[in-house]
Each structure stands twice: as C-alpha cells, then as structure tokens.
C-alpha cells in the first residue's frame, strides 16, 4: 500500500505544469486585471477631483469678480455722489458769488446814482438859489462867476454839513 512508485515524480511534474499554467491563466491575469482596474478607478477619481477643483476655482473667481463688480458699482455710485455733491457745492458757491457780484454792482450803481443825483440836486439847488437870489435882488446875477460862487458856497456848506 505504501509503495513508492513513479507516480511521485509524475505528480511533481504535474504540479509544476499546473502551477505554471494557472499562474498564467488565473493568478497573474486576475491580479493584473485588478491592478489595472484600481489604477483606472484611481485615475478617474483623480480626474473627478481635478475637475471639481477646477470648478471650485472657477466659482471662486466668479465670486471674486462678482464681489469686485459690486465694489466697483458702489464706488461708482459713491464717486458720482461725491462728484454731484462737489458740483452742487461749486454751483451754489458760484451762484452765491455771482449773486454777490450782482448785488455789489447794484449797490455800487445805486450809490453812484445817489451821488450823481445828489450832485445834480446840488447843482439844481445852486441854480435855483441863484435864480431865487437874482429874483430877490431884482437884478440878474446871471454872470458865470456868480453862479460858480454860489455853487462853491453850497458845496462848502454841504461838505461842512457832511463832515
């Protein structure tokens, strides 16, 4: 029963052949297939991760852009407001200045008119005084030096009063 036969060596050879064939057909093939798949899956995962990263980056950029635009709009509005306010102030100041000038000119004019009116009135008064004096004196004092004399007198009186 426990006889040693050539079956021993044949079985060893058989085992080596089986090992060699199964390694080719089964073990290595399945192992390389699994490796390839895990590599593929990893690659796809990495792709997905990179796509997500890119999408995130785009979103960030977009948000930054949006925030920038909001800032800019705000800035523009503020700038416009500032400028409007400055313009307003400038216009108001200009108008005030203009109004001032007009008033001053009007005042100057008025005072000038007043002075002139006063001078005219003074001349008139002198002439009237001369005429009245001549009429009172019954003679014509129509001489030029008389009129000048009277005027000088009135002026003196006026300046004395004005002082």
């Amino acid at each position: 029963m426990l006889r040693f036969t050539v079956t021993f060596f044949i079985t060893i050879a058989n085992l080596f052949v089986l090992y060699w064939i199964l390694r080719k057909v089964l073990w290595d093939r399945v192992a390389s297939f699994l490796d390839e798949r895990s590599r593929k899956v990893r690659g796809e995962l990495e792709d997905a991760a990179s796509a997500k990263a890119r999408a995130d980056e785009l979103k960030d950029r977009y948000e930054a852009l949006l925030a920038n635009a909001e800032n800019e709009a705000e800035w523009v509005v503020k700038d416009a407001e500032d400028r409007g306010r400055a313009e307003y102030r400038r216009i108001v100041a200009e108008a005030e200045a203009q109004a001032d000038g007009i008033r001053r000119r009007a005042e100057e004019r008025a005072s000038f008119e007043l002075r002139r009116a006063r001078e005219e009135l003074a001349g008139e008064v002198a002439r009237l005084a001369v005429a009245a004096a001549a009429r009172i004196a019954g003679r014509s004092l129509g001489g030029a030096d008389d009129a000048a004399e009277a005027e000088a007198f009135i002026r003196a009186a006026e300046s004395g009063r004005g002082r």
Partner: peptide, 12 residues
C-alpha cells in the same frame, strides 16, 4: 488515496 500523490505535494 495514493501516498505518492500526497508525498509529491509535501515534497514540493
């Protein structure tokens, strides 16, 4: 059931 088969496996 053949000792030669199992002995071959053990030897390998």
């Amino acid at each position: 059931r053949d000792i030669n088969v199992t002995a071959a496996f053990a030897a390998v």
